[in-house]
Structure formats: structure tokens, C-alpha cells
Amino acid sequence: MADDKSNAAAYWKANVRLITGCLIVWALVSYGFAILLRPLLSGIPVGGTDLGFWFAQQGSILTFIGIIFFYAWKMNRLDKKFGLEE
């Protein structure tokens, strides 16, 4: 029982760590590159405009898709590793 408990706690900790990483990337591409850091990236040209504009209208959406599939894949592995899969 104690083992089950510490195993479950370790699983949850690993999940929270993974979520934190995902959300850092999520915030970086949208609030960072596309909005707040856009002036810093203005020197990088992309098709008639700058990198920040690309992130605002395309890059962030593509990154979001990548984050979700990465999270789903990684969590499936965590579920198995900790023996908590359905």
C-alpha cells in the first residue's frame, strides 16, 4: 500500500513536471515570441514581415499542436512506466 502510494505520488510529480514544461513552451511562443518579444525578433525577416508576426498568425498554432501530441505520447509512456495505464 505504501509502495502504491509513493508510486502514484511519483507518477503525479512526473506529470506535473511535464505539464510545466509544456506550458512554458506554450507561453513562450504565444505571449513571448508573438507578443512581448516581437520587437526583439523584428530583425528576423519572414516573407515580407518579421518572425513575431509569423508566430502570431501561424507558428504558435503549429507549436500548440506539437505540444499536445508530445504530451499525449509522453503520458502514455508514463502511464505504462508506473503501471497506471487502463
Binding site: 509544456c22 506550458l23 506554450w26 502570431a56 498568425q57 504558435s60 498554432i61 499536445i68 504530451y71 499525449a72
Partner: peptide, 19 residues
């Protein structure tokens, strides 16, 4: 550019939903 908020806002929520 100013209305890119709708593009990011209405897609970024799915990252929150998934995680």
C-alpha cells in the same frame, strides 16, 4: 497583426484542455 489574438486565443486553449 493586432487581431492575431483570436487565432492564438481560440487555439491555445486546447493545450490547457489537454494537459
Amino acid at each position: 497583426y493586432a487581431n492575431s489574438t483570436f487565432l492564438m486565443g481560440w487555439t491555445g486553449g486546447y493545450v490547457l484542455l489537454a494537459t
